[in-house]
Design a protein around this nucleic acid. Sequence first.
DNA 1: TTTGCTATATGCCAAATTGATATATAGCGG
DNA 2: CCGCTATATATCAATTTGGCATATAGCAAA
Lengths: 177, 177
Amino acid sequence: MNIRILCLGILSFREASGYEIKKEIEEGMFSHFIDASFGSIYPALSQLNAEGLVTVRAEEQTGRPDKKVYAVTEQGREALAKGLLVIPARDKYKSEFLFEMLFKAMLPEAHVRLAIEKQLHDLKDDLLRMHECRQLGQVDQGSEFIMGYGEAVLSAGARYLEDRLAELQPKPAIAAE
Amino acid sequence: MNIRILCLGILSFREASGYEIKKEIEEGMFSHFIDASFGSIYPALSQLNAEGLVTVRAEEQTGRPDKKVYAVTEQGREALAKGLLVIPARDKYKSEFLFEMLFKAMLPEAHVRLAIEKQLHDLKDDLLRMHECRQLGQVDQGSEFIMGYGEAVLSAGARYLEDRLAELQPKPAIAAE
DNA sequence: TTTGCTATATGCCAAATTGATATATAGCGG
DNA sequence: CCGCTATATATCAATTTGGCATATAGCAAA
């Protein structure tokens, strides 16, 4: 599944500019399981427009380039429906953190602690973001399902890391009151 | 962190050919959090060789191209150690499954069931592979840590999906004895 | 007050990466 | 005997990333 279907999907919730789609991917409900850069979003939107799957409307701005607001067409909705009917490809998960931890034994303990704390922070950040979306946004069947999955997986990871941190040598009590 | 460090890391456990590195990434302990294709592995190994971080030795084969066995050099180990000392980048997780489930409401229930079952199968497959590696392989500090993390996360996902499947309409008992 | 950071907004482009294909042989199952 | 899988390397178009350019405005720190 390519970025074109992804944009179509996000646009099916509300019309948006390329910039807003990027923000949605970074900060919205999708953030923990989707990634895309401007370099792929903008060409995808142009292509979708050329194919008649979305329409564009230029909104004037002062001091910035015109905002190009994209909206999905009826054809676009059909293309999305068709695109969603394939059995999804296997998840792709890339973790530099886990790769690094594979060499835990040869790394300074301080570095290991830092890396684990960073990972824990990232997981909690994702969880927090999800909870915010849950409160603010409209929760339908689909978003309820994926947030439940995200919550289960992310909090399991966080619990594991907290347990491992607790096992680590008691943290150096620098300036600890 | 790029594929060169990745290859260096795998080669630090044992010498291997490009093909064997790919297999390790697909079927080994790393499989659920690492991905790389031949198109990136082979150039990476050539480059590492040119930089003196690995050595090559051609092993004759009958009926196939010579196997090029790569081994990490002392310089290579130093480069790896240095490469591991950066705070790891945020995890990247891409899930077509979760994206599709976002549109759960507009998909036929049969398709939703199929997609969930496929995802559950993938998670269990990863878990199984990890358990096999645990039994067969030498378990050190690092691999113990990452397998613990993997186990926690993957099984939390699997449990969630099993619960959701159970909630789904009782599965159509076609030809069920 | 000036410097730097963040935010808005689009776009380009080099570099990295994927995913498919080519080439070659051998074994296994239907 | 045909197709599939496995072994093994390599190439390459297409996709994708990540950084830069451009432009303006607000906010905070030095």
